[in-house]
Write a protein that binds this DNA or RNA. Structure first.
Length: 231
DNA sequence: GCGACAG
DNA sequence: ATCTTGTCGC
């Protein structure tokens, strides 16, 4: 089972306990055959959610498998502890996959985190799979604007550590924040994200998962009260 | 002390 | 994350 803390102190303790288990050596797969995208959509109340995992062919980007599950936020939103909200439902969805992913692309940071243990590290350690974090906005670190062309990047520095890279995935488009989650090298992480973001700012894996969980959330909201489980 | 703060 | 209209541009 997953360790679900109830307080900020407990959550930080969990991160500190798991952080040493992150594999920072593995360069990761050069040409994975299957890549998973993970994302969560929240209802207006901020409590109910839908978590989605999609598995794509890393070459053709065809969707090979997809799972979406309803759930509840397992923790309050606290920057730095955000992973605890969606971890349980995401792990449940991962368990139901029929096509095994060789790499996880997470919607959030990995090492680019105050305690070097963001969502991508957490999911990587718990599943044992190589994992990458792709954030849309920064959490920690300083950086300089990368060049305009797709593929340009600049280091994301937290003190003296390069905790990630600010990567331009499309010409002249706002960059994303790439960081290592588990069993990956930073160079490879950037290469994998570029391969997955061929036409849009975000990797196709993330876009597919995002679309799936948002659609499911709307479907759930439009559904009448469940007659099978009355109050 | 003040501001910042993944999704 | 989500709430939201129009608008600028290819």
């Amino acid at each position: 089972m997953t360790t679900t803390p109830r307080t900020v102190a407990e959550a930080e303790a969990v991160q500190d306990r798991l952080r040493p288990m992150v594999d920072l050596v593995g360069p990761g797969p050069t040409t994975p055959r299957t890549v998973a995208g993970l994302d969560v959509a929240y209802a207006e109340d901020g409590d109910r959610l839908a978590a989605a995992v999609t598995v794509l062919d890393a070459t053709t980007l065809a969707v090979l498998d997809a799972v979406v599950l309803p759930g509840r936020a397992a923790f309050g939103y606290v920057p730095g502890l955000f992973a605890f909200r969606e971890l349980p439902t995401l792990l449940a969805a991962l368990d139901r996959l029929t096509v095994a992913p060789e790499l996880l692309v997470c919607d959030g940071h990995g090492l680019a985190h105050p305690r070097r243990f963001g969502l991508a590290c957490h999911l990587g350690v718990l599943t044992g799979l190589p994992a990458i974090g792709v954030g849309k906005t920064p959490l920690v670190g300083r950086w300089e604007e990368p060049g305009r062309p797709r593929g340009s990047w600049s280091p994301l520095l937290d003190g003296a550590d390069e905790v990630g890279r600010v990567l331009r995935t499309q010409d002249g488009i706002k960059p994303v924040f790439v960081s290592v989650g588990h069993r990956m090298g930073l160079d490879n992480a950037v290469a994998q994200v570029l391969n997955l973001a061929r036409r849009y700012r975000l990797p196709e894996t993330t876009r597919e998962a995002d679309r799936l969980c948002r659609t499911e959330l709307r479907r759930l909201a439009a559904l009448p009260a469940d007659p099978c489980r009355p109050h």
